[in-house]
Amino acid sequence: MKRDELFLEELKEMDEEFSGWDFSYVSGTGRIQSGALSWSYGSKVRRLMRNTEAMLDMGTGGGEFLSQLRPLPDYTAATEGYEPNLPVAKNRLEPLGVKIVQINEDDKLPFEDNRFDLIVNKHESFDPSEVKRVLKPGGTFLTQQVGGLDCLQINEALHAKENQYKDWNLTEAMNGLKAQEFKVVTIREDYPVQRFFDIGALVYYLKAIPWQVPDFNLEDYQDELYSINEIIKDRGYFEVRQHRFLIQAER
């Protein structure tokens, strides 16, 4: 199959290194655009932070989100399991007084019992029993999760295996929390559109989120990428559906 020069140039361009959890390289220029959710995770976190003395941000990434919540509670900690993100998070958050902790297992949080008034979690896995242990009685756990049907159309277009987390959904998450006697206060679920306006942006996305297509590489998927590129040339974008759900629960 003949490859046009622009297609090959865009693939080559995506050797750009990805660090932290900042997609501004492609999203800031509009190369990837996502539809709005019916809730604002940031607004909910800010409201819950009022009168909070101790807060934990689970899976802080490079600290991009947490750093924008200033002023932070007197004691604020953050966990991160992806090693390349740790120096990025430390550089951004330690000057703000945030304690950064590397974790390898969700069921082993290095904090004492009943330590936090508020635990927030955006797109990070969690163990309900461990969240309960480190959360004070009456404390709040707020999580926004990526559901197992997220961007399924990418896998279909690439003829790749399904997302390894395909069975993760709102019901599973709620059942886990209720089994630990959490009171579920709020639930929401959305499937917003996400569009990729050039093939390079899609490649960048897949490199940054390796669990979407774990065996992704340019050589093995070049034919499928070329087909997606033809869709983009014809329609102007390649469209998929995200899967997001939100749970607010109290201990």
Results as ranks from 00 to 15, higher is better:
residue 131 V to S: 04
residue 133 R to I: 10
residue 134 V to P: 11
residue 134 V to Q: 08
residue 134 V to M: 10
residue 134 V to Y: 07
residue 135 L to N: 08
residue 135 L to Y: 08
residue 136 K to L: 07
residue 136 K to G: 04
residue 137 P to L: 09
residue 137 P to G: 07
residue 138 G to R: 10
residue 138 G to H: 10
residue 138 G to L: 12
residue 138 G to E: 09
residue 140 T to R: 15
residue 141 F to L: 07
residue 141 F to C: 07
residue 141 F to E: 08
residue 142 L to W: 09
residue 142 L to R: 10
residue 142 L to T: 08
residue 142 L to K: 10
residue 143 T to F: 11
residue 143 T to P: 04
residue 143 T to I: 12
residue 144 Q to V: 09
residue 145 Q to C: 14
residue 145 Q to A: 15
residue 146 V to Q: 14
residue 146 V to R: 13
residue 146 V to T: 15
residue 146 V to E: 11
residue 147 G to I: 12
residue 147 G to Y: 09
residue 149 L to C: 12
residue 149 L to Y: 11
residue 149 L to S: 15
residue 150 D to W: 11
residue 151 C to G: 02
residue 151 C to D: 12
residue 151 C to N: 14
residue 152 L to D: 08
residue 153 Q to F: 05
residue 153 Q to P: 05
residue 153 Q to G: 06
residue 154 I to Y: 06
residue 154 I to R: 05
residue 155 N to F: 03
residue 155 N to G: 15
residue 156 E to C: 00
residue 158 L to F: 01
residue 159 H to I: 02
residue 159 H to P: 00
residue 159 H to E: 13
residue 160 A to R: 02
residue 160 A to N: 02
residue 160 A to S: 08
residue 160 A to W: 01
residue 161 K to P: 01
residue 161 K to C: 05
residue 161 K to F: 06
residue 162 E to F: 03
residue 163 N to F: 15
residue 163 N to V: 05
residue 163 N to T: 03
residue 163 N to M: 07
residue 164 Q to P: 14
residue 164 Q to Y: 10
residue 164 Q to F: 14
residue 164 Q to V: 15
residue 164 Q to N: 12
residue 164 Q to M: 14
residue 165 Y to A: 11
residue 166 K to V: 12
residue 166 K to D: 06
residue 167 D to N: 14
residue 167 D to H: 11
residue 167 D to F: 08
residue 167 D to I: 04
residue 167 D to Q: 12
residue 167 D to T: 14
residue 168 W to P: 05
residue 168 W to Q: 11
residue 169 N to E: 04
residue 169 N to W: 03
residue 170 L to R: 03
residue 171 T to E: 13
residue 171 T to L: 07
residue 171 T to K: 13
residue 171 T to H: 08
residue 173 A to Y: 06
residue 173 A to T: 14
residue 173 A to I: 07
residue 174 M to P: 01
residue 174 M to Q: 13
residue 175 N to Q: 13
residue 176 G to F: 04
residue 176 G to I: 02
residue 176 G to R: 04
residue 176 G to L: 02
residue 176 G to S: 03
residue 177 L to C: 04
residue 178 K to P: 00
residue 178 K to H: 02
residue 178 K to V: 09
residue 178 K to M: 11
residue 178 K to S: 05
residue 181 E to L: 11
residue 181 E to I: 06
residue 181 E to P: 01
residue 182 F to G: 00
residue 182 F to Y: 04
residue 182 F to D: 00
residue 183 K to M: 04
residue 184 V to D: 02
residue 184 V to R: 02
residue 185 V to Q: 07
residue 185 V to I: 15
residue 185 V to C: 05
residue 185 V to P: 00
residue 185 V to D: 10
residue 186 T to L: 14
residue 186 T to S: 04
residue 186 T to P: 00
